[in-house]
Design a protein around this nucleic acid. Structure first.
Lengths: 193, 193, 193, 193
DNA sequence: GATGAATGAGGGTTCATTCAT
DNA sequence: TATGAATGAACCCTCATTCAT
């Protein structure tokens, strides 16, 4: 029985599983290869080196993560609704993919500075999304026109990120998605007039 | 000329310098020993293992960090003032100690999950401080009596932490302390009625 | 536009170029295949394995090398003249083919003992040529009738080979062919009565 | 039972044995360490890397090789005698140390260009010795005053080296030392007037 | 208490060769 | 014939920790 998934995706998915199960520093290339069902050398036909797997992983996953959120907020009419959908989606997506949550929130942050800088580049897409919502809210008059966009964005991302991290560190013992409304309420109050 | 500092502190200070200058993954025990002016083996008379150095480092530094902040907020009369002092102190202390900022915000976060769990234990002292301010504000009627304490605390810590991290990742190119008022204003609006 | 050269020669020529340009240890089969304009697998339709390429290369090139020299000395009347032509030809041929010179003098000598033994087999054709000149000189009375043929041959080959190697190691900065007369003179004195 | 040899020498001697017995490309650091009776890591307390072992090996062995020969020729009165002693010593030393002979004549020549250049540096000490004998002979009138020193030296070294290599490639089946007189005679005739 | 030489486990990556198409 | 994607064995070096002095 052959897998029809192209090997590139196959390897990235394997990496997520292996990192989630073994931790960043115990995610050897050979383990990833075995999980992907390919030979060690095959990895290097699709990725320049181990770091390249991790960056690609983050890009792929975060790319579709952002895309999903963006789709969700597109139809919404008010900035408040958009923000709510963003928080809800963020929590939802990570709730539904335990491995991804562990990998992006905990494991990949153990990487070295160079890799983290590249990861930060990817995160810029998320920051941009937040900025768009903020600008929109300021235009519609929902948000304080004198907001410091940068600080507001850092508050929003910092809050959501901290909550998710805590949730994972607590072994996902509470219902993350259920927190969305109260998180949203706090954030809305902060940026409103 | 021999240092009179007890070797325990000597080694921790050396660790901060070495990690700040070389990064977490390039901070070998032998480098720390050399920086501390002791033999490699001497380290193990004062610390169980390398991880123990890092935890002790975090405990020592975070302990005095929290103490300083606690002192600052003690005299203040309103919860809002306390929160302002907390944010200002937080930014101030890290602004004045570049090495500490780099080590606690960036480098130590590259440690494995186990170590990070222990670091989180130390952070509980900080969380408690935030909780106290929140409770105080709820009692005085400054803050919303229906606040979800945990989420509010995560918002406050997440926001402050994210801003500091961004500041360091940007090579401290902007004035961190100057941001305190607008950060404070956002947070106050979030938790007020 | 396809090359009409049979692929066998095509691959050997590619190997010479790749080895000369990249060195023995950086001359991967895939590089040779790319240089030859064939697929990696095609190599194995014409050669048993990588070693077989190198031996074949040496045989082909050394074969025509010896042939050229043999032609040059055939018409000469005295052993001294023959020896002069041999040295001159040797220097000439390598001077005119930089790649070949590098490959046979430097790169192929990095091969393992087994391959070098096979290379030595090919060199026997050259040794035979020298032996013929020596015998001829001994018969004509030009050379010492009590010569130890084997030692004399090793002197002649060792001398010429050492000079060529030095010339290449010095990046061909001096005129190799111009050395032929003085080399010849030394050798003639050695073997003469 | 502890070895009292300093580990540096211990490791070099082990390297000679391992390379002689297994060949250059099969001489793994772990094998050398095991043969030396030390841990793999210990190697790196005395040598920068694997290449450093090989260069040091060559320097140490070639250094004492040249020293021995130099001592032998010092007392001799004529250039011819000096040359004889040199050839004899060269053959003698290698005859008496099979491993060294294999390592320096065959195995180390498989190293990459960079290492070979460093090996060549060491050989310059030998070349210098030959040059001294040649100059001496030219001064005493034993040798042709118009000798091309460089070519003569290359002849002498090339001849001796080729003979030793052949001897080893033939598994030392003939008596190398016994060849010294006839080799000497040839070389003397070559450089005499 | 203090030293520092010695230990030894562990992993990313290359590349000659194969074989299904 | 020709292809080229896939294979998987093999090795140098680092560094936290120990222990004889």
């Amino acid at each position: 029985m052959k897998s029809n998934k192209p090997k590139y995706k196959q390897i990235i998915d394997a990496a997520v599983i292996v990192i989630a199960e073994n931790g960043y520093h115990q995610a050897q290339v050979s383990k990833i290869a075995k999980q992907a069902g390919v030979a060690d050398g095959t990895i290097y036909l699709y990725f320049k080196n181990k770091e390249d797997i991790l960056i690609s992983l983050f890009q792929e996953k975060m790319g579709s993560f952002i895309e999903k959120i963006r789709k969700g907020i597109t139809g919404k009419e008010t900035a408040a609704e958009k923000l709510l959908v963003m928080v809800e989606s963020h929590f939802n997506i990570l709730s539904e993919d335990h491995n991804m949550a562990v990998v992006t929130q905990l494991e990949l942050r153990q990487s070295n500075k160079e890799l983290r800088l590249k990861i930060n580049d990817v995160l810029k897409g998320y920051f941009q999304l937040v900025d768009e919502i903020l600008h929109f809210g300021m235009e519609t008059g929902e948000f304080d026109p004198n907001l410091d966009i940068r600080v507001s964005r850092q508050m929003i991302f910092g809050t959501v990120d901290e909550i998710v991290t805590t949730w994972i560190m607590n072994e996902e013992k509470f219902d993350l998605v259920a927190l969305a409304p109260s998180v949203h309420q706090l954030l809305i109050k902060a940026v409103s007039i």
